[in-house]
Design a protein around this nucleic acid. Structure first.
Lengths: 205, 205, 205, 205
DNA sequence: GATGAATGAGCATTCATTCAT
DNA sequence: AATGAATGAATGCTCATTCAT
């Protein structure tokens, strides 16, 4: 984890992790409701279950909370997605499973994804770069699975583009829910999108 | 236009329109740089070429500026896209032209699109709903073109999904430029995406 | 004056001067009581007769108030001292008059002098340098009067040293009042100190 | 010493003294750099080599540290000056030696003297009175040496005034170093000032 | 209609001090 | 005796909004 990118006055490692988890949980709740800018540090502290003074024992700036939140979300997505991929042997079925898992994950983590989507831009250059790199990694993961699993040849660029498409179609389910979730069940959405992806990869399903 | 959703103390219609256009132009410049929350009303007034007092003669709340900006952007996109569509007779070529035009437009208006993307959430319920309706309209336009132009049958749902995919693929070119624009030229991007869309529509190209 | 070293959002020159004078007056009252660090910006605003928001229309940082205060005090001392000097023809009597005036001035402005004495160090490098230059100028004035008024020759260095001695003996009357003002009346103090200075300059009185 | 003016939770006398010396040393280092108000208790604890909790075992308030520091500085000055005086028989040479020693001491302890000069005012009434009494004592020492060493008669008042002058001329070397130390070497400064003092005392040198 | 000075609620952040371990 | 995590009052500063001219 990258918690250690953010400086803390408290030395006890375990405690730092514990408090930061409280903080991340509290902050996500609030960011969902009102976004980063409209959430005050006092609210974060309160929601996290400690005082404003204590909050600042574990971070240096309000922005650190946002970074911690973004980092944590990616960490979770990454971890859970990797779990699905690692265990499997390359095969078409495998590919569809991964994509399906990814979509399901995006469904479960809708709110978190929306936060990331809308707030990453508020990070300072360095930390933003750090978080975007994580996003690149995730797209990279999808790309690798695509390349590995399909029997046909595919150019690097095409793989990359399709990986990007899949990636944001997953996110889209969450941040365009007001449009999509009225028309589709999750199942339908996943089935159709996978169908089109397979077509793109010239695979009859 | 929906300028009249936002109340103004000034009665002279023309003047209101003129001032609001200055304001929108100024605000877009600033929002591109620093986002809505980090831009102050004073800055907006200055950039627009009038005083803070005058700014508040034409709006009621800071949020009104954001609404005006979002509305204006959609208006522009809508207008320019409609121009492309209206003139054409339904045909496959026509469809690809529309999609191509849309992608090109998204390229030209990248920054504006990013603003919309990241700031709409800051609008209050009512105005947000208004803006999102515009987005629905645009997706609807794409959907209609798809349905009209292809010779094959396609279900409402499939058309809708593909329209949504195209819609956000266009936006993605702008807000994921840090990823895509390093790998693709606009031409390449458009060609590949259109290719996949056509595949989805079972049209050999 | 150097008011213009401190930026103000308000453009009306006269108003700026008026408000800053209120501010300086209020701040001096408070700084006398509790010093710069223990005085809050809110207190300064209140004592000056306006709101905290208004205070910050006329300064950028709390430190600006201190600078304005220091600058204003020196300005006054300088002005009043110069008035005494300009009008007179060089003569021994003249010299004693200037020194006497200086001591009397230091007596009148005791509190202000104490503020300067104890708070200048809190200024940032640049502004501190600016204020110290004013102090150098004042010592320079005394030095010039000494050199001009006495008939005997005196080295530059000696004149400078004596000017410095006189300068701080004047200040000492204020900031060591707890010691001196119990033992001496102002008259006595001035007479004795002038006596010694004249001795230093080898002038029989 | 007056350490016992400041209450400590720790009972072991030796330990208290040891810790307080660490504290005073650390605090002086920091006060030189940034003054009392800008130095935090945490910094003092760290610089002293122990934790913030431990710091508060040996003092009650932050101001206690300042008192301890001021007291310690005076103690040192007093002690070292007394050493010079005690050993000598009254004589003119003796007087010049004491004054010379005092000036040399002020040179060595410049920074400490500046701290005292600028921070004593931050002490609460009682402790300030205590520290100022020490200053009176020191001036008294100088006064006594003057009276004792010169063959001529001198009034109490004149002796007091000259002692005060010498006292602050010594401090002035430190706190006006930006002005004086560019023009004079320590030797020159001492020689000239002693010369003038002797003149005041009507002693041909 | 235009201006810009005034307002004060609101926010991020700091830091002296306490107290359980 | 020593530690350092926790606390929250206090503070500098910002900024949307108003309103007299």
């Amino acid at each position: 984890m990258a918690d250690n990118e953010v400086l803390s006055s408290v030395k006890n490692r375990e405690l730092v992790e514990k408090r930061r988890n409280q903080m991340i949980k509290g902050a996500i709740t609030l960011f969902k409701e009102k976004g980063f800018h409209r959430t005050t540090t006092r609210e974060i502290a309160k929601e996290s279950g400690f005082s404003i003074g204590t909050l600042y024992e574990y971070i240096r700036k309000k922005e650190d909370v946002l970074f911690l939140v973004c980092d944590s979300i990616y960490e979770q997505v990454h971890e859970r997605l990797e779990a699905k991929i690692d265990l499997q042997q390359p095969s078409i079925e495998n590919l569809t499973n991964v994509i399906r898992s990814y979509f399901e994950l995006m469904d479960e983590m809708q709110e978190e994804v929306v936060i990331m989507y809308q707030e990453v831009k508020s990070l300072k250059k360095d930390t933003k770069e750090y978080v975007l790199q994580k996003e690149r990694d995730m797209v990279g993961m999808l790309e690798r699975v695509i390349v590995t699993c399909i029997p046909t040849e595919i150019s690097k660029k095409d793989a990359e583009l399709i990986a990007n498409n899949v990636f944001i179609q997953g996110q889209m389910w969450g941040f365009r829910r007001w449009m999509l979730q009225k028309q589709f069940t999750l199942e339908e959405y996943i089935d159709r999108q996978i169908h089109y992806v397979m077509q793109s990869l010239s695979i009859e399903k």
